[in-house]
Simulated scan of single mutants.
Amino acid sequence: MFIIFGTRGLKHTVSDSPVLSNSCPNCNNGSLVNKLYRRWFTLFFIPVIPLDTVDRFYECDSCKSAYNESIKTILQRSKEEINENQKRATSIYAKALIAAMTHMAIIDEDFAPEEEREIKDAIEGFQEMKEELLAIHENVKVNANMNNQVFDFLNSARNELSSEALINILAQAAVVLLADGTIEKEEENLMKEYLIACGLPKEMYQTLIDKLKQKDMTTLKKEQMN
Rank of each mutant, 00 (worst) to 15 (best):
E186T: 14
D210Y: 11
E186C: 08
E188I: 15
Y205H: 10
K211T: 02
P201C: 05
Q206A: 13
C198K: 09
T182Y: 12
E184G: 15
L195R: 09
E187S: 08
C198I: 05
D180R: 14
A197W: 04
E187R: 06
K192N: 05
P201T: 06
L190G: 02
L195N: 02
G181K: 06
L178D: 12
I196K: 10
D210T: 10
D216N: 08
Y194A: 06
K213I: 15
L208Q: 01
M204G: 00
I196M: 08
E184D: 14
A179G: 14
G181I: 10
E203P: 02
I183G: 02
T219H: 00
M204C: 06
D210A: 11
N189C: 05
A179F: 10
Q214F: 12
I196D: 02
N189S: 08
K192Q: 09
A197L: 08
N189I: 13
D180W: 10
K202W: 02
Q206T: 14
E188K: 15
T219E: 00
Y194F: 15
K185L: 13
E203H: 13
M217D: 00
I183M: 13
G199L: 05
D210P: 03
K211R: 15
E186L: 12
C198R: 13
L212R: 08
K202F: 01
E187P: 05
E203Q: 10
K185S: 10
T219F: 03
K213T: 13
L212A: 03
M191S: 08
D216G: 11
G199A: 01
K213R: 12
D180L: 07
T207G: 07
T219P: 00
M204W: 03
Y205P: 02
T218M: 07
T219L: 06
L178E: 12
P201F: 08
D180K: 11
K211Y: 14
A179K: 13
E187G: 04
L220P: 00
K213G: 03
E193G: 10
L200V: 06
K211W: 07
E187V: 15
A179H: 09
G199Y: 03
L178W: 14
T182N: 09
L212I: 05
G199V: 07
L208T: 01
Q214P: 00
L208W: 01
K213V: 15
T219D: 01
T182L: 09
K202R: 12
K202G: 00
E186M: 12
T207Q: 06
Q206V: 10
I183P: 00
L212H: 04
M204V: 02
G181Q: 07
P201R: 12
K185F: 09
L190M: 11
M204F: 10
N189Y: 12
G181W: 05
D210H: 09
G199N: 01
E186N: 12
L195C: 02
E203I: 14
K192F: 04
L190I: 09
G181A: 07
I209V: 14
A197C: 08
L190R: 11
L190Q: 13
T207L: 07
L190C: 08
T218D: 01
